[in-house]
Design a protein around this nucleic acid. Structure first.
Lengths: 341, 341
DNA sequence: TTGTACGCGTTATCAA
DNA sequence: TTGATAACGCGTACAA
């Protein structure tokens, strides 16, 4: 085992209380005692044991950020912002990945207990949390990019998201406004849960309906069995192109997928946007650096991340919850063009 | 505070020992006692406190993966592999991001103590670890993509990496073999530390020297003050293009940077590879899905990740250390072409 | 098969 | 300005 506070105390010829005071700057210690202790601490590379600390103390100035699929590029920039803002408040931030198999809420509950967290931000996930589970998480919680779902009382959490359905609808209407009627859609969402992706699907359908464009299942590509990403977009787009010779535009539910789709188009010798218009969703850097840069529905990621921290500390302060729905912006960068025939 | 083992014991009408036995499957418990305890545990959503558990220093079957800059796309796929392989061994894996300001080794030491880790994999970072610090980390440690540096005894850690210098040299020689002589280089490495990136810089110089191509500082773009990424590559490439009208090829030290650079080329209406050949390094998915797909020096990421887990468990088993240097492969995908004038 | 009691490393409450 | 000492929640000898 490593060196403990007890041994440091003995080596410095003081009590453990004094050592504790020195390392935590709590309570009064005479300068020369402090110095003595410090030197011993340095000499033996003493590091306090956090488990013991958490066990004893009830307040640690720390919050956690749980990210459902940290590999998601869209989340990356939000993570950076949150990291900075939390640090600015003098709090420590624990960043944890939550994989597909794990329950983010369960992890939050566990971590909250282990680390005496003051609050949690949960990024990604679904809209299906139970009021009961959320109640077990006794600390303030902010959902980022989703809300907790209908059954959960609004005053038990805060949330920040966009209106995925409306924004997706906007994307498709943008294509429609350019004369497109045969509009493909690529998406991937679990069947059993409500996620932002499911809402984007709804948005696609809504736009078609609104503009009296008949829905054609052949124009929709999806595959629950695989993870979405570049290759997913690539494969799905190839399917769409094979099946629909008259398709003139495609809406991909995420930028990564849009990139894969765009690659499929270009690889076949087709042109963007002359032959196929493509629009994505999220607003990640990769879509901008693709060539041609892809049009997209861009979420105000930095702003959302920033707000998540603010809402969390609002809750910490006076328990006030808030539910923000941000506007996304349609970025026209040239991957969509009016239909030309 | 949350419910504790003591309260569960009381509610179930048994001792805490029995509860402990039930939840850990240690020691004998009669079926009906077990059932009784389980039901109380379930009813009250009891979750054992990990801090308290760790305090008892009962070797928890867990290892940690510390990632220097988890946002790095190249690391992402390795993380997935490691996650799976560790799980297969029945160990729990803690994944931790280490940002630029933090010392990965210090974090490892801290975590090892707090969580009773059995071992650590450190991904990324530099070649400058001190033997002393490594000694303070008393558990097996595997460095992935770097080694610990010259002063550290080889039997105190394991490592897996590639020969960055030789591979970078290979990339440049590939360009040279196609007749290129005015070859730009974009890179970014801290001045005070030895990193894979510094080695790639060396490789660039080495290739030039080997083929008697005069070194021209105007062909090298770097900027220590910013983080490297797409935008970095974009900016640096624009600088290079402005300064060197006769440049025919560029080697970017990382694929992300190569993508930004390629975007700069295409944005100016130049063609790849007809006007400028571009080659990157790492072998990330993004480079493949860029259009045109970018040539690159591809590291065997999955294999390296897999080996890192194996080496860690080798060390756990019998203390054997090993130092592997993998071969990278040159992926020719069409972003480089023979010079044509 | 079950329970009692101690200690893990730390902080906090007293009293000196 | 210092120092005993009691918790914190849990696992585990050792007893029963």
């Amino acid at each position: 085992m490593d060196i403990t506070i007890k041994e440091i105390a003995k080596l410095a010829g003081v009590s453990i209380t004094t050592v504790s005071r020195v390392i935590n700057n709590s309570g009064p210690v005479s300068p020369k005692t402090r110095e003595k202790v410090m030197s011993v601490v340095a000499e033996y590379n003493y590091i306090p044991n956090n488990s013991a600390r958490n066990l004893k103390s009830t307040k640690s100035n720390s919050v956690a950020l749980l990210v459902k699929s940290i590999a998601n590029p869209f989340f990356q920039k939000m993570i950076n912002v949150i990291e900075q803002k939390v640090a600015l408040r003098g709090y420590q931030l624990f960043i944890q990945n939550v994989n597909d198999m794990q329950s983010e809420l369960d992890m939050a509950i566990q971590e909250a207990q282990d680390k005496n967290l003051q609050g949690v931000i949960i990024m990604g996930g679904s809209f299906n949390y139970s009021a009961n589970e959320l109640k077990r998480l006794k600390i303030p919680c902010v959902f980022l990019t989703v809300s907790a779902g209908k059954e959960v009382p609004l005053d038990s959490y805060s949330s920040i998201r966009i209106d995925d359905e409306a924004e997706a609808c906007k994307a498709v209407e943008y294509l429609i406004s350019m004369g497109h009627k045969r509009i493909g859609f690529i998406y991937n969402a679990p069947l059993d849960k409500m996620t932002p992706n499911s809402l984007r699907h709804k948005g696609y359908l809504q736009a078609l309906e609104k503009h009296k464009i008949p829905f054609d299942p052949a124009l929709v590509a999806t595959d629950y069995s695989v993870a979405s990403g570049y290759d997913f977009g690539f494969k799905m787009m190839n399917q769409l192109l094979m099946k629909n010779k008259d398709m003139t535009a495609v809406f991909a539910f995420a930028d990564t997928v849009a990139i894969g789709a765009a690659k499929a188009v270009l690889s076949r010798g087709l042109r963007i946007p002359e032959d196929i218009s493509i629009i994505g969703f999220d607003g990640i850097e990769e879509a901008e650096y693709f060539h041609p840069s892809l049009d997209t529905i861009s979420q105000p990621a930095e702003q959302m991340a920033l707000s998540s921290v603010e809402l969390l500390f609002d809750m910490l302060k006076d328990g006030q919850t808030k539910h923000l729905i941000y506007e996304s912006s349609l970025l026209r960068r040239g991957s969509c063009a009016p239909i030309n025939n």
